[in-house]
Design a protein around this nucleic acid. Structure first.
Lengths: 339, 339
DNA sequence: TATATCTTGATAAACGTTTGCATAAGGATG
DNA sequence: CATCCTTATGCAAACGTTTATCAAGATATA
């Protein structure tokens, strides 16, 4: 049998409301009573029933985190756990619990979001998305339910946190230009995925700023899956004029690409330089070590929670955006031989 | 304002209990009423309040998943998300929500588990652990709260799901023996971590079964962190009699080891063969591609949920164990040159 | 026609909290 | 000593469900 506030009250010879006030740290309670109640609470190993508490003050200290399914492959991604840890680090501190909505299909996602918003179980939502058009986001905007997006969508009525993907693309190009490259390819553009769009955008902008003509054939589309890096790179290798440098939208793609390059009898970076994005733990151990961009997933998560908290406190007047800086990590896969 | 069961009842000219019974699919309701109510529910976009429902029938359809913190590094691990997906796949189907308790320290873990068990918010817990002695597990056993462990601990009063780590160690040794190796090293044994203990156990058993003497110096201890593979391997390389094959307790360790081997001017697998465990996505793209053991994390997760459901239904008389089979994936890092 | 049976729906209590309002005790003030 | 604060506590309603018990109407049976 579960020990309730009434049991404590009875044992302490006070009313339940007094116990409740002790728990809440109300100043209206005498020191003596407070101490007595606290002691008994400890003795009886009492823990407040979160459910009951949530019911009465209609904002449960639970936030929902909605993750897209394996369909998007994102689940395999090492930064997901880090992101969760980032959210949790702050959430725990603030006494929020995290309800993880791990959905596989879009239908499931829609249903889940409905349950979470109308079901009264969560106070707010953090939504992970990489799609440029996200029906779930639109759905949430319509209901007015408090939420924050990690990633970015085209819907403007949204508070979001994201990496500066445009800058990431830009910086990688500049890095390669510094190394003397002029034919720089972009591997892994996926039209529906905002991240890749932004990165490509940065890539184009950097080229333009440095008066390098943009070449359609140097951009290779994909589905953001590792296995493709190998195949995609082969397309580039088949070009009349091969690129001398390759920016891959993800480290997994980069590894595949390097494999293809090496199999073709070429060397990285001597013949073709390569850089990835996300800085997976193995980038350092690859041969050659892979230049990448470190995404601060932890910060992404904690910032998202922070923003959601602002939203919950109605402290946001307009729509907020936060951009988490990323850091270029140069390793040998992108370095020119000394000239 | 939230639409409640009373709003529906009012609109439908019936009592709240009737609406409730419609939701529950009770057979005591006439088809006409049922249809009318359902229609109005849809019209008003009604979703039952999960909190209120949980309060009244004291078993909320929420299970807690407790994950060890970054301290154990486990978070970086690619199979964590897959595990979660495995849990969620079944949980969603059964109408259970997942509360993710993502704790950083042991104190936080203890506190969190207390809140989850006594706080009435979860019906049961799935606990991830790799420690042989886990205070949280002991704590849970004592309270009698329904829970299942993924991983294994020494506490016997526990339902758990795990890989057959002993077999994994055994098979890898046999694989290397098949390739003609006799001096096989074991990299990454960590005394407090059950997984590595079991794998080492399998390793020893295989050696014994094949009458190969066990050599203390071929077992290298570590902390289960990628960065160490490199350093640990150097210790092996410094031996008078170097091993000709290395089993690494984790792919990340294996990658570090390969790097050390190659830096020492030796070749993999020609001079030293290497195999890892966990089959991370990159194993295939490494140079050379890494032999590894595929852990079915998804199955691990879904099996754990299944078991928890049994526990919740009190369908377990004794303590259950489930072992998820793993699969050796042979790639070139472990293959002997043709003789 | 009176009674029993069955179908359908309503009433109210309960789950464990929080909190506005009321109240009692004690001290200060006039 | 009556009045008024202040401080500390209790009472009871409310949060949105579920469900046991009860009631009423309809139908069948004697």
């Amino acid at each position: 049998m579960r020990v309730t506030i009434n049991d404590i009250a009875q044992k302490a010879q006070v009313s339940p409301s007094t116990v409740s006030r002790v728990i809440a740290g109300s100043p209206l309670i005498s020191a003596a009573t407070k101490e007595k109640v606290l002691k008994i609470m400890k003795e009886m190993n009492y823990h407040p029933n979160i459910i009951a508490r949530s019911l009465v003050n209609r904002s449960p200290r639970i936030i929902g985190v909605v993750m897209p399914g394996m369909a998007e492959q994102s689940f395999q991604h090492p930064f997901f756990p880090e992101l969760l840890a980032g959210i949790a680090s702050l959430a725990n501190k603030e006494g929020y619990k995290i309800l993880l909505a791990n959905v596989a299909t879009l239908d499931e996602e829609e249903q889940m979001v409905k349950e979470l918003t109308f079901g009264g179980i969560t106070a707010g939502l953090i939504l992970l998305t990489s799609r440029d058009q996200d029906p779930t986001v639109d759905q949430l905007v319509e209901t007015g339910f408090p939420f924050v997006v990690i990633g970015r969508t085209e819907n403007p009525y949204v508070n979001w946190v994201d990496n500066d993907n445009i800058l990431i693309g830009y910086q990688l190009v500049e890095h390669f230009l510094d190394q003397g490259h002029r034919r720089i390819a972009f591997l892994g553009y996926s039209p529906g995925i905002m991240v890749t769009r932004d990165r490509l955008h940065g890539y184009k902008k950097a080229l333009a700023d440095h008066r390098i003509p943009f070449r359609e054939e140097l951009v290779v589309e994909s589905e953001f899956i590792s296995a493709n890096g190998y195949d995609l790179m082969k397309r580039l290798l088949a070009l009349d004029e091969r690129p001398t440098a390759v920016i891959a939208c993800d480290d997994l793609l980069a590894f595949g690409a390097i494999k293809a390059i090496q199999e073709a009898g070429l060397r990285v970076p001597a013949d073709i330089a390569v850089a990835g994005i996300n800085n997976v733990p193995l980038a350092d151990y690859y041969n050659p070590p892979l230049t990448s961009v470190k995404i601060n997933a932890f910060a992404l998560g904690s910032k998202a929670f922070e923003m959601l908290q602002m939203v919950l406190a109605s402290k946001v007047e307009s729509y907020n955006r936060a951009i988490i800086p990323a850091e270029l990590v140069v390793r040998s896969s992108s370095l020119a031989r000394k000239e």
